[in-house]
Amino acid sequence: MASAVLKISDTVYAQVRQHGEQTYPHECCGVLLGKALDGTNEVEAAVRAGNTRTDSAHNRYHIAPQELIAIQRQARERSLDIVGFYHSHPDHPARWSPTDFNEAHWLGCSYMITSVETGVAKQTNSFFLSGTGEDDKRFEDEEIRVWPERC
């Protein structure tokens, strides 16, 4: 059973999944803003980012650092933090790949992956990057708790 938890509203969860459908057959990517509280990343907003890997956008993603700086600034202005990232795997399972792991450096953050099959979002999973540095980092399965925003 996963010990890390990602809390996200149904609205933001749907936005993340729709992004993957809209960019299909390319990978989408974006940043999750919210608060980190004792092993739980609470997402308040998802910010879409451009995928700079136009050379291989069907199976790679990369967010330009300048865009990240701007998103980090937005987060500060809203008293939020970057608590995670999301991307899609077009026609590929919603599991992290060796590429995802090698290029994951944001310890304590959540990495959400949505599998998009023939243009339709299917499974969404999240993985918590734990550890204290590059030497002992690891992805842990993370429970996604979707809560209804509209009462």
Binding site: E27, Y61, H62, P65, H89, S97, T99, D100, F101, E103
Partner: peptide, 14 residues
């Protein structure tokens, strides 16, 4: 100054 680790990945195997 902003310190910003990179964000990248994808389904392909390096």
């Amino acid at each position: 100054l902003s310190i910003i680790p990179s964000i990248a990945g994808g389904s392909v195997v390096l």
